[in-house]
Structure formats: C-alpha cells, structure tokens
C-alpha cells in the first residue's frame, strides 16, 4: 500500500536512490520496493536514516511509470507505481553509492545539484 494517511505525513521519508516516499515504519517493514536488493533497508533503521531522507519536495503519485512522461522525466521508469518525491535532499553514503553501482544502478542525486538537462545539440 502506497497510500499514507495524513497523520503519518510527518513520518514520510524518501529513498535517496529511487525517491519513493514511505513512512519510516513502512521502510522498516518492507524496505524500498525498488532498491531493496542493494540498500537492504528492511529492519535496518540505521540504513533507513542514512539512505532515506525526510527532506524532500514535491509529492508525485504514479500509476504507470512507463507511460507517464512525468515518471520518465523523473527517471522512475520501471519502478513500481506509488508515491515518489520530485526532489530529495541528502547525501547518500558512499558505501550505498557503491552498492548501487554494483547492482547496476547509476546513482544520480535527486537533490537538484546535478544538472539533468538534455545536452544541448550542437
């Protein structure tokens, strides 16, 4: 269930890798549905506080990550439908970055620090 009742909104955190938004408890119970293989958040509160961020901006619900341009633009293609953040602050720990790279996931910070604009055509 991706729905989070309003009274839980203050516990919402966003995964720094895939930007999915869940509550701390949800991350504890089932981890990150997209990044669990390498972040291993389930039951690991330290990992959750390191790899997810309470500081995010823009809430995005996606029903179809393939079809939605928004999802593509947010690099959410292939992820599960659910609630994502548009911008996630925070710095992913180095070992998590390495783990992601090893898992074939190229980690791009979602905090706006990296320019993601399309390269200008010459």
């Amino acid at each position: 269930m991706a729905y989070i009742p309003p009274n839980q909104h203050r516990h919402m955190r966003a995964c720094m890798v895939c930007s999915i938004v869940r509550t701390f408890q949800q991350f504890m119970q089932s981890g990150c549905p997209n990044c669990e293989s390498f972040l291993e958040l389930t039951g690991n509160s330290d990992a959750i506080s390191d790899c997810t961020s309470q500081v995010f901006d823009g809430l995005l619900t996606v029903s179809n990550t393939e079809k939605s341009w928004v999802a593509r633009y947010q690099r959410l293609e292939g992820y599960v439908p659910g609630v994502y953040a548009i911008q996630v602050e925070g710095i992913l720990p180095e070992d998590a970055v390495v783990a992601a790279e090893n898992a074939g996931v190229h980690y791009i910070p979602r905090d706006g620090s990296v320019s993601e604009a399309l390269p200008t055509e010459g």
């Binding site: 895939c18 593509r72 690099r75 293609e77 292939g78 992820y79 074939g104 190229h106 980690y107 993601e116």
Partner: peptide, 12 residues
C-alpha cells in the same frame, strides 16, 4: 532507458 540506468538525458 530504465530508471536504474540513470544518466540518460532527461526527455523533454
């Protein structure tokens, strides 16, 4: 491009 692939220029 799949999300995990990462550094693909964003699609307008």
């Amino acid at each position: 491009q799949k999300a995990a692939a990462g550094a693909v220029p964003l699609t307008l």
